[in-house]
Amino acid sequence: MLRDITLGQYYQTESVIHRLDPRVKLVATICYILSLFLVDSVWGYLAAGLFLAVMIRLSHVPFKFMVKGMKAIILLLALTVAFNLFLTPGEPLVSVWKLTITKEGVRVAVMMAVRLTFLIIGSSVMTLTTTPNNLTDGMEKLMKPLRKIRVPVHEIAMMMSIALRFIPILLEETDKIMKAQIARGADFESGSILKKARALVPLLVPLFISAFRRANDLAMAMEARCYRGGDNRTKMKPLIYQRRDRLAYIVLALYLVGCFVIG
């Protein structure tokens, strides 16, 4: 059942955001993150928040899925807030024991919390509306200029998509080998760290062997289907900018200009 895990966290539904070219979403996400660090006023944050709210609304993804991404960083968020709250010098507001909360501290802490929250939710909008495949395609095309400085862009993208295809298979395989070894009395749970690490050998050796065998098979299958690198390949689903993509870039530009003016 491990095969049912969808990587990334793509949320399947119909929306204008889903249909956008992945390059637009990538660029927009990067610009949005930059804008968060550019603005420095309440109005700026309001603009950023508004922009984000509109995007979420357009994406048709339930809000609770957006917040899911937050769980992973809640500790980081709390730490950042605490540090800024207590360690920012300035006009004291409240003082408890040796810790002093300053007026500046509150300001910075709130700002950081908002920034981080927007940042995480902002990138979630991208990952929730774009399939991993599509994202790899987008990256490949965006990074194409890097080929001039000999970055193997196509190969990196191919590796990423093969990894995405095989991770669920290898997860299932791990589960199977683990069960087989448990049936032979292996114990993966109890014992010291050292003992636990040693218990992994019967798991990792077969897993690596299997991964290599699969890699070998796949390489042969790709060769048999005339794969010879990225040159001269055509695309079944080429990325071509549509009207909506150009429109999206304009909206993005307007937002950035707005941020400059307000922030």
Partner: peptide, 9 residues
């Protein structure tokens, strides 16, 4: 092996 020759997702 059916798993080891499918490249697309």
């Amino acid at each position: 092996n059916p798993d080891n020759q499918i490249i697309g997702q």
